[in-house]
């Protein structure tokens, strides 16, 4: 069983050492520029000249390419086909398929959109692969994100696999008492009740106890929280973030510019 839901891979690299907020800004900049820039080849350029080299810089290329392809290939392919076939633009018909025309323009349009999606998913994958969730959350809470919000995100990532494991235990326990979980559809549907009951009510009790436990450890204290992890944020990273934000704004303005 996996101990937690997280893509993070522990390695030492330039990308791993960057401040989480810088990485988040970079990710958002890559995505937004890919979507906003009016220049046709921007998303392709970003993918090849930014996202791929960054995955090498982060020393996670094999995992990156595997995860990104698995996540995006089905959706991007589907999107590409749908848009190539049904987008009613352009005159240069490349081939006809019954009543559907695939034009050069619709192919170009579909290709760009599929690449945009690719940039979006792959930059997020890269971000998650190189950023430890608790590091991200402590950095964001230091910058004013409410502690409760950070707690909900992080604890969900950790507790979901535990709930999964408990569901397995309950299934095994009920099956050992003769519950049928493998025959006809209706029998299996009926078998859900004795599985869900203990899981849901058990979780309620757990939530109450966990609330007591974290409350006993000062969770709602009005004191200003401190953090065990020291997260570096050198001043040049702050500059980098502003430059990235500026680039996003420029892309947006270019996009809005009446051409």
């Amino acid at each position: 069983m996996r101990e937690r839901l997280s893509f993070y891979i522990k390695r030492d690299s330039v990308l791993h050492r960057l401040n989480p907020l810088t990485k988040l800004t970079l990710t958002m900049a890559l995505i937004l520029i890919a979507f906003l820039s009016p220049w046709y080849w921007t998303p392709h350029f970003i993918l090849l000249a930014a996202v791929l080299p960054l995955s090498f810089a982060g020393r996670v290329f094999p995992e990156f390419i595997k995860t990104a392809l698995r996540l995006i290939l089905p959706a991007a392919t589907f999107l590409f086909l749908m848009q190539a076939i049904f987008q009613p633009v352009g005159e240069t018909v490349i081939f006809k398929f019954y009543f559907l025309d695939v034009t050069r323009e619709s192919l170009m349009f579909a290709f760009r959109n599929a690449t945009r999606i690719f940039v979006m998913v792959s930059s997020f994958t890269l971000f998650l692969l190189t950023t430890h969730p608790s590091e991200l959350m402590s950095d964001l809470s230091r910058r004013g994100l409410p502690g409760q919000f950070a707690y909900v995100i992080i604890s969900t990532l950790q507790i979901l696999p535990q709930i999964q494991a408990k569901a397995q235990t309950i299934i095994a326990a009920q099956r050992s008492r003769g519950l049928d979980t493998e025959s006809t559809f209706f029998k299996r549907a009926g078998a859900i009740v004795p599985l869900v009951g203990p899981l849901v009510f058990g979780s309620f009790i757990e939530v109450e106890e966990r609330a007591i436990a974290i409350e006993a450890r000062g969770f709602t204290s009005k004191n200003l929280k401190t953090s065990l992890q020291e997260i570096a944020d050198p001043s040049f990273e702050r500059t980098v973030r502003w430059v990235l934000i500026l680039l996003i704004i420029i892309s947006a303005l270019l996009n809005l510019w009446p051409s």
């Binding site: 608790s134 950070a150 707690y151 507790i159 757990e206 966990r210 450890r217 969770f219 401190t226």
Partner: peptide
């Protein structure tokens, strides 16, 4: 099991959780 905060990935961080909440400085923590 229910006393583990779920917000931390190592035992060391888990034990520090309460001290973070009440704002103990890092070195002392």
């Amino acid at each position: 099991f229910n006393q583990i905060s779920g917000a931390k990935y190592t035992v060391f961080e888990e034990i520090a959780f309460g001290l973070e909440n009440i704002g103990i400085p890092r070195d002392e923590m």
